[in-house]
Design a protein around this nucleic acid. Structure first.
Length: 419
RNA sequence: GAGCCUGUAGCUCAGUUGGUUAGAGCGCCAGGUUGUGGCCCUGGAGGCCGUGGGUUCAAAUCCCAUCAGGCUCCCCA
């Protein structure tokens, strides 16, 4: 690889012209699906106050404790947002969006930042799309969020995914469960991994997430949270499952699914794909009924999801899904000589005003090269302009797909191309 | 943050036990066609062999370090 003077920071990648088509296509799909599901887009700043993320995401999470890009400027603490749920919740509280009436159905697309060691499907600047329903406690909202998420993968054509589902309880059920869980692990603690021993104090639920071999025997026969849910939360959970079944959205219950962010309550879900390797989560989310209050708003139930765009593209590649369609150029003007070139420069705007995409050579290439360039740009038509044409006032219009050509006046050409 | 693997042209990759001016395909530029793309033919440009150090008469090749990427772990999207 040639050494260039500057390069991107580790884990931050350029999205080059050749790949940008698929980004635009995916964004279009997301906007269209959002419209169908009646979600409105929200765009929040890329930087937030560090305290918001710390409170919202959770002080003890990896994201906050070791993965934040944060800096101070004067008395202000800036952080590059590592996720977008806390920012959206912040905007909801700050701008009193509850006053718009009803629940707020919001979605976003944008870059997030986490200072992790990069690997496939994991970058320091990565992109997520996601949605939140704020102000609705009904299980129907949980299911609508999941349906919205799934509809995007359906549109893209990624179908071999597994939706994992769990309920992580409310504070009351979690308290009871945590007690039982600790009692379960305590006698074996010395035989368990260091991380798990650490989590035992900080967040025992996360031990269930452990992939350490020595932990497996104890995780396998651990009690499950779903046995300790309060009546209300259990009812909520079974209602979510009923609705998913009614909507023909297949899911797998995973009693050990624990989300890594502290704000989740009740419903938790994750969409995994066998096409992704180690980083196999396409997206995930859940209910977070405590977050809005935690960051200073009124107690407000909410549910949301976030999904990784780069991971979606990796899955597409594995499945041979071509997202981008070929870009076409309506007209390419091939010019021979200075007079022709002037003619071209003068007539390009007329083509564009007529709503056509139009281009020409600016670097004085041979006719053959200009034709090749037109071909490369996927031009539907080429207008050939040389001294003969200028004298006759008729220009060769070549249809590149049919390989047919005929001479017309410029007005006739406009007429033919726009009709 | 830890372990393992890999860095050669814009891209994908050859390069023998260390041995002259480091190769191919694709792409790019040009010519074959005094004014016609795709196919074909010919030619050309393009490499500090990731970077720094070491061993050696001699290093893309061996050794060390470092950086970057990949795979696991961790974590998550």
């Amino acid at each position: 690889m040639a050494q260039s003077t500057f390069s991107t920071h580790v884990g931050m990648v350029d999205i080059l012209p050749d790949e940008v088509d698929k980004w635009q296509k995916l964004e279009r799909i997301i906007h269209e699906e959002a419209k169908k599901f009646n979600f409105e887009e929200i765009r929040t700043p890329i930087m937030e106050q560090t305290e918001l993320i710390a409170r919202g995401v959770g002080q003890l999470t990896d994201i906050v404790s070791k993965e934040m890009f944060a800096f101070d400027r004067g008395d202000d603490h800036y952080v590059l947002r590592p996720e977008c749920t806390a920012p959206v919740a912040r905007a909801y509280v700050e701008h009193h969006l509850d006053q718009r009436g009803g629940s707020q159905n919001l979605y976003y697309i944008g870059p997030m930042f986490r200072a992790e060691k990069p690997q496939k499907g994991r970058q320091r600047q990565f992109h997520q799309f996601g949605a939140e329903i704020i102000g609705a406690a009904d299980p129907a909202a949980d299911v609508d969020i999941i349906a919205f998420m799934m509809s995007i993968y359906d549109r893209v054509g990624i179908s071999n995914t597994t939706l994992k589902l769990n309920s992580v309880g409310d504070p009351e059920s979690r308290k009871a469960y945590t007690q039982v869980l600790k009692d379960h692990f305590r006698p074996h603690l010395s035989e368990m991994s260091e991380v798990s021993q650490d989590r035992f104090e900080k967040n025992p639920l996360r031990i269930l997430d452990s992939k350490e071999e020595e932990d497996q025997p104890f995780v396998e026969d651990a009690p499950v949270i779903t046995d300790f849910l309060t009546d209300e939360t259990a009812e909520h959970y079974s209602r979510v499952k009923e609705l998913l079944t009614e909507l023909d959205i297949p899911f797998e219950e995973d009693p050990y699914l624990v989300r890594g962010l502290d704000y989740y309550t009740r419903t938790a879900f994750e969409l995994v794909s066998p096409d992704l390797g180690a980083q196999d989560a396409l997206g995930g989310g859940g209910r977070y009924d405590l977050l809005i209050e935690e960051i200073g708003g009124q107690p407000t139930p909410a549910v949301g999801f976030a999904a990784g765009i780069e991971r979606l593209f990796i899955a597409c590649e594995e499945l041979d899904i071509q997202l981008a369609e070929e870009e076409m150029l309506d007209v390419y003007i091939v010019t021979l000589g200075d007079e022709a070139r002037k003619w071209g420069i003068n007539h390009l705007p007329k083509l564009r005003e007529a709503g056509l995409s139009a281009s020409m050579d600016y670097i004085g290439r041979s006719m053959k090269s200009q034709m090749k360039d037109a071909d490369r740009e996927n031009a539907r038509h080429v207008i050939i302009v040389g001294s003969h044409e200028l004298e006759a006032g008729k220009f060769v219009l070549r249809n590149m797909k049919e390989s047919e050509e005929e001479a017309f006046t410029f007005d006739e050409i406009l007429e033919r191309l726009t009709s």
